[in-house]
């Protein structure tokens, strides 16, 4: 069982320039979203939601994605006036739950927490994936982005990224860095780090972030690549020390942690997740959902909770989010291939 669903993200301000570039590409995703109109809900979706909404979380209960999904479901419930039931359907890198939603009726009563694993990495990682991350979904909104952090055991001598890279080049054995799993975005960040610095990195995969963190605290593995929400508590408690954060700017909750870029490694990376439905969601439903998410993310209390958890509220509506997903698929393809992870 994986505790830490989420994976590193793509931070915040870094997205802005790219977002502008991609705005044109968003139209590519539109025809699919429009294709199944005219169903019973098609007449403006005025009656929606008529029954409880199933929000499929494609991760096991208890992980950070699950936690934020539950905050999201609470927020939607209040704003839509209809019960939102969280349904955990974990499996196969979040693709089992995502496939179920891709195949569900596009009536707005079945939604999924789309994420970097199932919608960014899986299209390249899983050769036999039975859905198209862009065309088989109506993407509604980007909800949260989580930067990744490189954390180290407090006794580990290297304090900065250049020191880590130097150590990894000098030691013939290289340096061990743990992650929550092979093919996870945390793993891919390690691959990118090795590529960027020429460091000899020995990736040590675990079944989820929990056991990996245990071994970093115990000193079995000196370093780990983890998503900020999953590492936040251990950083605050001083059990591990942060070496670098993969966002474009420092995180408000951890202002003392320098970014990769500040330390001369040009890497901005992280995990993200958002709200999506099956392809062909009525535009009125998509619109209402997007507005509910936007209202939730504008709520100061919700923003504060997300920041505390180490995340950053997303800020993309339906078109931009669809373009974002397509860009992520393209962006991760070469990194996945370089990592050697490939699932038939």
């Amino acid at each position: 069982m994986r505790y830490a669903g989420p994976d590193p993200g793509r931070p915040m301000s870094s997205i802005l320039p790219r977002r502008a570039v991609l705005a044109g590409g968003a139209t590519l995703a539109l025809p699919a979203a429009v294709r199944a109109q005219g169903g019973p809900q098609g007449a403006g979706g005025g009656s929606w939601p008529t029954q409880p909404i199933r929000l499929v979380v494609p991760f096991a209960p208890g992980g950070t994605t699950d936690i934020v999904a539950r905050l999201l479901s609470q927020g939607l419930q209040e704003r839509l006036g209809q019960t939102v039931i969280v349904e955990n359907r974990p499996g196969a890198g979040a693709t089992v739950g995502s496939l179920a939603v891709a195949q569900a009726a596009p009536d707005g009563h079945t939604l999924v927490v789309s994420n970097i694993a199932s919608h960014g990495i899986a299209p390249t990682l899983y050769r036999g994936l039975r859905y198209d991350a862009v065309r088989d979904f109506t993407h509604v909104a980007l909800v949260v982005e989580n930067p990744s952090v490189f954390v180290a055991n407090p006794r580990f001598p290297a304090q900065t990224l250049p020191e880590v890279a130097r150590l990894a080049r000098e030691d013939a054995r290289g340096i061990d860095i743990a992650s929550s799993g092979s093919g996870s975005s945390n793993h891919l960040l390690i691959v990118q780090f090795g590529q960027a610095t020429g460091a000899r990195v020995n990736h040590v995969p675990y079944r989820g972030a929990g056991p990996a963190m245990t071994d970093v605290i115990a000193g079995v593995v000196p370093m780990m690549s983890d998503s900020l929400p999953s590492a936040a508590g251990h950083l605050r408690g001083g059990a591990v020390r942060a070496v670098a954060i993969s966002a474009a700017t420092r995180h408000p909750a951890f202002p003392a942690v320098p970014t990769f870029r500040e330390q001369g490694v040009d890497l901005v990376s992280g995990s993200w997740f958002g709200l999506s439905g099956p392809a062909g969601l009525p535009p009125a439903v998509t619109d209402r959902l997007a507005r509910a998410v936007a209202a939730l993310l504008a709520d100061p209390a919700a923003r504060a909770r997300l920041a505390e958890l180490g995340g950053t509220p997303g800020n993309l509506g339906p078109q931009d989010y669809a373009a974002f997903v397509a860009a992520e698929v393209a962006r991760w393809a070469p990194v996945v291939q370089a990592s050697g992870a490939q699932v038939d």
Binding site: P61, G62, G63, T64, R70, L71, G233, R236, G237, E308
Partner: peptide, 21 residues
């Protein structure tokens, strides 16, 4: 703060939702 099994992972989740790490 390390969950030993799935139930403990849920406990962590419940605590985090309450704002306790």
């Amino acid at each position: 703060g390390i969950p030993a099994n799935a139930v403990m992972a849920l406990m962590v989740g419940a605590l985090i939702i309450q704002g306790i790490q």
